[in-house]
């Protein structure tokens, strides 16, 4: 049996659509099961002839609406069903982003007058507010879910589903120029880090010349090799022959890429913990800011330093958990 490229792409789009409604931990394996099932159906029906886009379309229409198929893999219906989940995620993301952005600006203005415990309380309050808002949104969507549940047969009606509604697959395979650009950019960053770090500071121009006040402390040079190594490894594992060709279903092609990403996540968490433990003053010269006439900036910068590291740490942990969950369930063939 042969399958045309256009038919294969259609199948991948269908699988991607189904995956959106599946739990992360089971997504890859269920997607492979469905892919295998589609191959079996095609093999039985079109043994002697090539499967074109039209034939694949008829098979997919028979399998039904992606959200409906995904829902069959769930033992119990979730509190918020597959129809509302994308909207719920969008609303929560927008709220968290706006709240985070506004709070960060607010914090930047207020930080200079805050003591350490006040800063802690500020972030605790922020966490409480965000949790409260997300909880309220969840309750609203839960009520909506209850309201539409009786109409679920209508929502799941296959007639409302069209092949053209399937999401497009973005080609994740970087082109040659993109790969070269990434490599060159990485080399430039590594060179800049190692050759020009001593030139980072505050420049005051006057009378045709300038005064330079360094703001980076000596310890920054001890951590530079770690940064350089991280950038180099990140660029290398992103190369197509290592990362795979962007397999849609999380199959064998990008398994090693996932493993390497987990390694990088752990590496990043290590660096962040190191930055945390050494503190702002190990890497920045407070007197540099004072000498340059910005003494009030130091307490703000100290708190921003902690805030940014906290955000990066949370992001790294989330990515680590996601990457681990994808490869954990059944491994690969």
């Amino acid at each position: 049996m042969k399958i045309e490229e256009s038919a294969l792409e259609l199948m991948k789009r269908y699988l991607k659509a189904v995956e959106r409604y599946l739990p992360i931990s089971k997504r890859a394996d269920i997607s492979r099961e469905i892919e295998s099932m589609i191959y079996d159906i095609c093999e039985e029906r079109y043994t002697e002839i090539e499967v074109d886009k039209q034939k694949m379309e008829s098979v997919l229409v028979e399998l039904g609406k992606p959200s409906k198929l995904a829902a069959k893999y769930k033992e119990t219906r979730p509190l918020i069903g597959p129809e509302l989940t994308p909207i719920f995620k969008l609303v929560v993301s927008v709220i968290v982003l706006i709240t985070g952005f506004v709070s960060l600006i607010n914090f930047a203005f207020a930080a200079s007058s805050m003591t350490g415990p006040e800063t802690g309380l500020y972030f605790l309050d922020l966490f409480g507010s965000v949790t409260g808002i997300v909880g309220t949104v969840f309750i609203v969507f839960y009520i909506l879910e209850r309201a539409i549940r009786n109409k679920s047969e209508i929502d799941f009606d296959d007639e409302t589903w069209k092949i053209k509604d399937l999401p497009e697959i973005k080609d994740k395979t970087p082109g040659r120029s993109e790969v070269i650009a990434v490599l060159i950019f990485s080399v430039i960053i590594i060179l800049a880090l190692n050759l020009f770090t001593d030139r980072v500071g505050i420049y005051e121009f006057h009378d045709g010349g300038y005064n330079f006040t360094p703001i980076l402390a000596a310890d920054i040079y001890r951590i530079l090799p770690l940064f350089s190594l991280r950038i180099a490894i990140g660029a290398v594992v992103g190369l197509p022959f290592i990362a795979g060709n962007g397999a849609v279903t999380g199959g064998s092609k990008n398994y090693y890429w996932r493993i390497s990403q987990i390694g990088l996540n752990v590496f990043d968490i290590g660096i962040i913990i190191l930055l945390f433990s050494r503190g702002f003053n190990s890497f920045f010269l407070s007197e540099g800011f004072s000498n340059a006439g910005f003494p009030g900036f130091v307490p703000v910068a100290e708190k921003l330093y902690v805030g940014i590291l906290l955000i990066l740490l949370v992001r790294c942990i989330i990515t680590l958990v996601r990457n681990t969950l994808v490869i954990l369930p059944k491994g690969r063939v």
């Binding site: 099961e33 099932m37 159906i41 399998l63 039904g64 409906k68 198929l69 069959k72 893999y73 033992e75």
Partner: peptide
Amino acid sequence: TQDTLYPMLRR
């Protein structure tokens, strides 16, 4: 149908 059997096998 497929959408009944496959999820059942998984369960």
